[in-house]
Design a protein around this nucleic acid. Structure first.
Lengths: 259, 259
DNA sequence: TACTGTATTTCGCTA
DNA sequence: TAGCGAAGTACAGTA
């Protein structure tokens, strides 16, 4: 990989390297001492400190402090990057429209600038999503309750689309809201909105509402009871990482190569 | 800044550099061709591609593809990193408990390893949050409606804490839910839950519910009407970046220095 | 530690 | 493009 990298570049050279990387659609990493301003959906300022800044060719800008998963400042994809020399400082600006937002990073010192021509077509394959839970139930509706018959997914109501719509053994309409993890009051409110809307659309019938999730909080449980809504405990898949601990570090590689 | 960096290191040396960086509590950047596996709240795999990997001393791990704001895989802070040499590949593993999660990155090629001793004590200062909207209203309650009297913030109900609780000119209780941006049905559901809970706690009185936000969607508006809830249009601050466009690139620096 | 709600949420999908 | 809901959401505040 023909990467470019320079340590402690003078400002003008840092600028030039960044410029080259932008032109070449590289991923650029800039490490140094900087301040940051942001103006858009809100506004923010960040005083001087050491950060790692990533510029991606799709317009993404990430500014990372030495701690935390979230970038302290950022720009989502879609915009464009610029760089300029300003009073011996290196300025990096990322701008986008819709919504109009500008992030400016001003380096008083650049410790390193690197530029990488990365190629990556791979998509993440993920197991254990809400969609997996839906599949799970559709494959065996009795998991929800004996005799449950799914009739539609994403069925439209005036309050929005219902995860699973079906009927029970009494032919009573059932609205099912799925959550891949433990639920709080918000999920109850969501289910309640759908049930209310469905009842409005089928005035002759009672409509049941069932919340499906691994577990509920106490408050959510109470709110379910108060509104005559039901709860069924189900998980997306049998993913129990607690027991599936990996072996000692060096020993896990055999599995991978033998596959 | 005494950073360490090496381009195209042999695997064993990459490992050693990473090891040193981990020991020194540095931020480590690894760029190369790798695969990723994740096991925890869900499971995922990612086939081979070029990525930038950041290891932070607080246990954060970020794996970035050449596009997108979100890391394709990650580990939140709190865990620990390890590295090892496995069949000529460089393995980086990040592990945490509660919840138990493991991310493994396996590099078949390392293009660059860098290690940075970063220090950054700065906190972000942000304007335009929901809290700013709250302050705005508390400073001038008539913004909500003439004669409105705030009595409490974060007032507890059985459904949770209410943003602002107060009374109108008729001494009728008013529950105010604040949102810093345009709201949809979820916010209506939230307000409805609070109002219902408050009515249950004060059976003698009608309780008003007011949603405060810059704007509402059509569906949310309809749901408000159906439940006799109200809407007031307010913004956190007069931050209108649409009109506050910055001048041409090189010309903005004057403002900053003259401030 | 668990619960609750905000977020410059981001992201994907759909009308 | 806007609306709607999921997310391995992350994160802060609180009990």
């Amino acid at each position: 990989m023909p990467l470019t990298s320079q340590t402690d570049p003078p400002a003008h050279e840092a600028c030039a390297l960044i410029e080259d990387g932008l032109t070449a659609d590289h991923v650029i990493s800039i490490v140094g001492h900087c301040t940051v301003t942001y103006d858009g959906r809100t506004q923010s300022t960040l005083g001087p400190g050491d950060r790692v800044v990533l510029c991606k060719p799709d317009g993404t800008l990430l500014i990372h402090q030495p701690t935390g998963r979230k970038p302290v400042n950022w720009q989502p994809p879609g915009g464009t990057h610029e760089t300029a020399l300003v009073d011996e400082d290196v300025l990096v600006r990322s701008r986008r429209e819709s919504p109009p937002e500008v992030v400016e990073v001003r380096f008083s010192e650049v410790a390193q600038v690197s530029s990488y021509p990365l190629t990556d077509e791979q998509d993440l394959e993920l197991v254990g999503s809400e969609d997996d839970l839906r599949q799970h139930i559709l494959a065996d509706p009795s998991l929800l309750e004996p005799g449950f018959e799914p009739r539609a997914t994403e069925r439209e109501t005036s309050a929005g689309p219902v995860d699973i719509y079906g009927v029970d053994t009494e032919n009573t309409p059932v609205i099912v809201e799925l959550k891949r993890r433990r639920v709080g009051p918000d999920a109850v409110g969501q289910l309640a909105r759908y049930v209310t809307a469905a009842e409005r659309e089928r005035t002759d019938k009672i409509v049941r509402g069932i919340l499906v999730a691994p577990s509920v909080t106490d408050r959510a449980r109470r709110e379910l009871d108060e509104q005559d809504l039901e709860f069924v405990s189900l998980e997306p898949a049998d993913s129990s990482p607690t027991t599936a601990t990996l072996d000692d570090f060096g020993e896990t590689t055999g599995e991978k190569d033998s596959g």
